[in-house]
Nucleic acid binder design. Structure first.
Lengths: 338, 338
DNA sequence: TTGTATGCGTTATCAA
DNA sequence: TTGATAACGCATACAA
């Protein structure tokens, strides 16, 4: 069926052990022998049987991507359906490929899923795990238990109470910075009445708001002159909030929205009110979701590079990145809406 | 570390073989023994070591999703970046989960990747493969070679020259039907001047066009009264085509666009020309991309259920679906644009 | 520097 | 119906 190390050994006139040593780059094999063996390996396109390797104690070259998916009646978050996830997974797969690893995807909702996951780690079926969508307390509990067991983990956007340990890396976005950059830009353009469409209660949202507040404070804008509307990261509500905001007599002249979906909705509301963008009302989004370019214009936004994030995540998962807290950079991305 | 079948055997006062028989649901074990063993298994949450199983001859419960990614200078298709893929993978992961399988993602671009893939099949690391984005001749060659080797495969939207065999299932969309439904609907609404914004040269696009032509023919519309514009599946060009189409003096009163991105662009062009949708111009899309609902209205479109497609793909991959050619249903989905 | 022997946890074959 | 035993393909401790 497939050539084994045994046969390679025979063909190269050495023992299986030597073949193994060559494959695993051991130092105690002379250059001559190594070359001789490598030649046979390449000629026969030999690749070790991964299950056999794992069984014999090596780790499998697979990173498992765990996506939380809960539904407790009131709250429901299908990670697999979020556009953010969909972009991320593509980048993770590419990043892992670069290091010769594959990404396996696992949806975890029930506690039984946690058990399966634990098994995969214990069986060395996977080298590491990247967790996404785990931020609520009841989820962080399990995450923390995993951390204590010493599994190599990367948690993207974790809850605040995540345990610190050598085997876990938390990845955050520079959200406060993003909010600050966006708001500062608008202030720098001469705007005074800058509104903020805030997202939901998640950390990223709260931090973006904090950045907005800092920028406003530094610009000497009075507390009571702030325009903040709390919504969520979706379009429908954002449209309503923006519409209502812009319908006022003394309306804002600029809006910083907590993500691109909200920004696009704000632009739509503005147009429906016959306001020109950016002349009458400037809009800056956040995240940079390339998909929104299909709406027909380039949104001015703050780009948080999913590619960078994915690369950092993979490196951290493989232990190639010493930092245990990573902050994904936020950069201004020019467009035509501000 | 982890409990093994050996220890389970001891605790249940049987031999490893019997534990194995219970785990694998062999018939030759009496109900009493089975219950006794199962009890221990459940109490200790025993799960067989997957690598050991694979090494001993069983197949791993993993389906590999192979996404083509080529870049030959002139043509470039990064499957991982297409929105269609991103939606599909989410559904595939869910569908596979239902059967207790995991999805591993592999990007295949170089010929070395094919070698790795072959190894995975040979090593029983994966049970089956689902291939997406392989449609050009030079790719189908390799696909056909894989088919000949007997690997269990599902190819989504394959090229026409795919080999027929018992171990492969081709999945197609009812594209001709989709085009027919959309166009018939518009004709049924009384429209006579129905235009079609065609996609690129891909099969799906060509079949949708064919459906449009059939509907028009059946309605007795003259050949020379057809309005067809050839574009691609993206928004920029579609906007231009629609704009130019609708600027004419005797313009079309309805448009069937080959996908939702194009339809949304057409709506935008109409609005920029101060035409009311659907009063002045009706628009029907195709595919149903939920993401587009964030633009603020529900597009009238033809829904091709990615979920159904994913479920069929997984079933076929696992040999639970006898048909070797599957057609993913196209359904009318009402909206406000037609 | 190299080879031999053993173990990894299962499934499958065979004999009882 | 059951249990002993031999694969499966590799890594590694130990011996040479």
């Amino acid at each position: 069926m497939k050539i084994t190390s045994e046969e390679i050994a025979k063909l190269a006139h050495v023992s299986r052990s030597t073949v193994s040593r060559v494959i695993n780059n051991y130092s105690n094999v002379p250059e001559d022998t190594r070359r001789k063996v490598m030649e046979v390996i390449q000629r026969y396109e030999y690749e070790p049987h991964s299950s056999a390797r794992v069984l014999a104690g090596k780790a499998n070259k697979i990173i498992v991507l765990c996506i939380s998916d809960y539904n407790d009646g009131s709250r429901r978050w299908r990670g697999v359906e979020s556009p953010f996830f969909m972009g991320l997974i593509a980048e993770l797969v590419s990043a892992a490929n670069l290091h010769g690893y594959m990404i396996s995807v696992s949806i975890v909702s029930s506690s039984g899923d946690y058990g399966k996951l634990e098994n995969m780690f214990l069986n060395r079926e996977v080298t590491a795990g990247i967790f996404i969508g785990f931020e609520f307390d009841f989820q962080m509990d399990t995450i923390n238990q995993f951390i204590e067991k010493g599994f190599s983990m990367v948690v993207i956007d974790p809850g605040e109470d995540m345990k610190r340990a050598d085997n876990v890396t938390g990845i955050y976005s520079e959200d406060e910075q993003a909010g600050y950059i966006a708001s500062s830009y608008l202030l720098g353009q001469g705007h005074r009445r800058v509104a903020h469409l805030a997202g939901d209660n998640r950390l990223s949202s709260r931090h973006r708001l904090a950045g907005y507040l800092r920028a406003m404070r530094e610009a000497g804008i009075q507390e009571d002159a702030l325009w903040i509307r709390h919504g969520n990261f979706e379009s429908e509500l954002s449209y309503q909030l923006a519409f209502e905001l812009l319908s006022k007599r003394e309306a804002a002249t600029a809006i910083f929205a907590s993500n691109d979906a909200m920004a696009v909705s704000a632009v739509r509301a503005a147009r429906d009110l016959h306001l020109r963008v950016p002349e009458d009302i400037a809009v800056v989004g956040c995240d940079y979701t390339p998909f929104y370019e299909t709406v027909g214009y380039h949104l001015t936004t703050i780009k948080i590079s999913v590619r960078t994030l994915a690369n950092l995540a993979v490196k951290a998962a493989l232990g190639l990145e010493p930092r245990r807290s990573l902050y994904c950079k936020a950069e201004f991305k020019p467009g035509i809406t501000a």
